[in-house]
Nucleic acid binder design. Structure first.
Length: 293
DNA sequence: CCGCGGGCCTGAGAGC
DNA sequence: TGCTCTCAGGCCCGCG
């Protein structure tokens, strides 16, 4: 499921009920997700105050009062939902479980705010892991990540530099989290479309020319900024699993220009092209061969 | 070192 | 209805 806009949507939904609140109890309702839970995972969270909730690429990081950090990843199908108390009730009163469809509810946090936070992940490609704050830079999942696409350091010069010597397609380069961290299949397709660049183009063609980033690199950075910001504003894209923490769907899928639009007309003004699909590195690429070069 | 293909899981949808 | 097949928003690993 989740690429950067979906994860950021989840972060914004969880922040008000997590930050400043205490995890009264945590439950891991099975032994593993993508990896086995650490021994005493739930116990180590019990009683911890969440002092902040951040995001790095597609990872969520909850800072804990103990100085530890809870690292969370949603995999392909992970989602969080917040179950709020119906009235102003005594904190400590739990509201979960609820509903029948809870087989894939794998982790539950009972918060001192009165909210229950439920992590659901049918495919179990997600994971949670507690690490020390000092270990963040050495953490294998984080240490090779490239720049945040919406951060200050990600610009045309940086992208151009990252493309130097790349022997792969532009599509594959943008999916490579070492080049830029947070894009996935949808937003790579959408950004390439908006920049009118072919997913088949060699990544190295964006590389720095005589110390100056190419216009193509500038266009692409601009397209990435636009598409991510719009998607965050829309609460992400809901194809099947993604939900906002309120349970509402995101609605950026209605703004897709190419993703999942095979055979439909290109939406570029004056372009008579048709959206095509083909497989690149084992993933579907959607694009308009007429206006993406 | 780099780039690619397979594998990890479950569920939805298409086709028969 | 029910079976089988393909495909899905991510990432790790092993191979060449």
């Amino acid at each position: 499921m989740p690429e950067l806009p979906e994860v950021e949507t989840v972060r914004r939904g969880l922040q008000p009920v997590m930050e400043g609140a205490r995890i009264v109890t945590a439950e891991a309702r099975r032994g593993d997700l993508r990896f086995p839970f650490q021994p005493d995972f739930a116990k180590r969270l019990q009683g911890q105050t969440v002092t902040g909730l951040g995001r790095r690429a597609k990872y969520l990081l909850a800072d804990l009062g103990s100085g530890d950090v809870l690292l969370m990843h949603l995999g392909m199908s992970g989602s969080f939902r917040v179950i709020k108390p119906e009235h102003e009730e005594t904190p400590g009163e739990f509201h979960y479980p609820r509903g029948k469809d809870s087989v894939h509810d794998h982790v539950v946090f009972h918060m001192s705010s009165g909210a229950d936070i439920v992590f659901n992940d049918p495919r179990r490609f997600g994971f949670m892991k507690i690490i020390g704050r000092g270990e963040i830079e050495r953490e294998p999942h984080l240490k090779d990540l490239g720049p945040e696409p919406l951060g200050n350091e990600f610009d045309a010069a940086m992208l151009a530099r990252a493309c130097v010597g790349k022997k792969t397609s532009l599509k594959a380069a943008l999916l490579d989290q070492r080049v830029v961290a947070g894009l996935g299949n949808i937003y790579v397709c959408e950004a390439l479309f908006r920049a009118h660049l072919s997913p088949r183009r060699l990544a190295a063609t964006l590389a720095t020319k005589k110390g100056e980033p190419t216009d193509h690199a500038r266009r692409l950075v601009e397209a990435i900024h636009t598409v991510l910001n719009e998607a965050i504003r829309a609460g992400g894209s809901s194809l099947r699993d993604h939900r906002q923490t309120s349970g509402e769907l995101g609605y950026f899928q209605h703004s897709f220009q190419v993703y999942d639009r095979e055979g439909e007309p290109c939406r570029t003004d004056g372009c008579e092209g048709v959206v095509k699909r083909f497989v690149q590195n084992g993933r579907s690429t959607f694009w308009c061969p007429k206006c993406q070069r």
